[in-house]
Amino acid sequence: MATVIREMPPPSHKTPFRRQPHLLDDSGSVGVWITQPAGMLVQLVRETVATGEIARFISVDAYQKLVSVMRPGERAFFIYDMGLMVRYETEARVVLTQWGLSVRDRIEHIVVRPPPEMNKLGRMGIQTIAAAMSLAGVQLDVVDDIEPFLRERNLRPRFSLT
């Protein structure tokens, strides 16, 4: 179950927008901004292990919130700032990959920022996801900084989710 955030993440962590996230998972680890143009920016707001539970929060709770404000036939941007991920569970990768493939017709573009010091196994996991999405016709870019993409696409948080 998602909750609306009541507090900003710690000041030492840079958020992508000046406003608070629209959603925060129950653990307080994942912030989600629903954007205009249509999109969802997911950011780990503290050091976190990406679990199946977090993957389900993203693929169910956050996605339902995004879809509720999208127009029929509209495609969305999915930006994942995973800079604070300390590791991920295989279940998280499987859940997100299967979900991504199931909603591929609603995806305009995916951008992933992995942790700067991610190990080879973790990078291989991201490459596996990227290959699966590419075969499904979805563009997925792995970047060191999400800011240029946000500026390029003029992505900004929605004022309201109603």
Rank of each mutant, 00 (worst) to 15 (best):
T3M: 15
V4Q: 14
V4W: 12
I5T: 04
R6G: 07
E7W: 12
M8C: 14
H13S: 10
H13K: 12
H13M: 12
K14V: 14
K14Y: 13
K14W: 13
T15Y: 02
F17G: 07
Q20E: 10
P21E: 00
L23E: 00
D25R: 07
D26L: 14
S27Y: 15
S27E: 15
G28Y: 04
S29W: 05
S29C: 12
V30N: 02
V32F: 04
I34Y: 00
I34A: 00
T35A: 07
T35Y: 03
A38Q: 04
A38C: 08
M40F: 01
Q43P: 09
Q43C: 11
V45H: 06
T51R: 03
T51N: 04
G52Y: 08
G52S: 10
R56C: 09
I58E: 03
V60W: 02
A62P: 01
Y63H: 13
Q64M: 12
K65T: 09
K65D: 06
L66V: 13
R71K: 15
P72S: 07
G73D: 02
F78V: 00
G83A: 09
G83H: 05
G83T: 06
L84H: 01
L84W: 00
L84G: 00
M85F: 04
V86H: 11
Y88K: 04
E89Y: 11
E89W: 11
E89L: 13
T90Q: 14
E91N: 10
V95W: 08
L96F: 01
T97L: 07
Q98C: 13
W99C: 04
G100Y: 02
G100W: 01
L101K: 01
S102H: 07
V103C: 00
R104F: 02
R106C: 13
I110N: 03
R113T: 03
P114I: 01
P115I: 07
P116Q: 13
E117H: 10
N119E: 09
K120G: 15
L121C: 12
G122E: 11
G122R: 04
I126P: 00
I126F: 05
I126G: 06
Q127R: 15
Q127H: 13
T128F: 12
I129S: 11
A130Y: 05
A131D: 13
M133E: 00
M133C: 06
L135D: 08
G137Q: 00
V138M: 01
L140D: 02
L140H: 06
D141V: 05
V142M: 10
V142T: 10
V143R: 08
D144P: 05
E147A: 12
P148Y: 05
P148C: 07
E152P: 10
N154K: 14
N154Y: 14
L155F: 07
R156A: 08
F159L: 15
S160L: 14
S160E: 15
T162E: 15
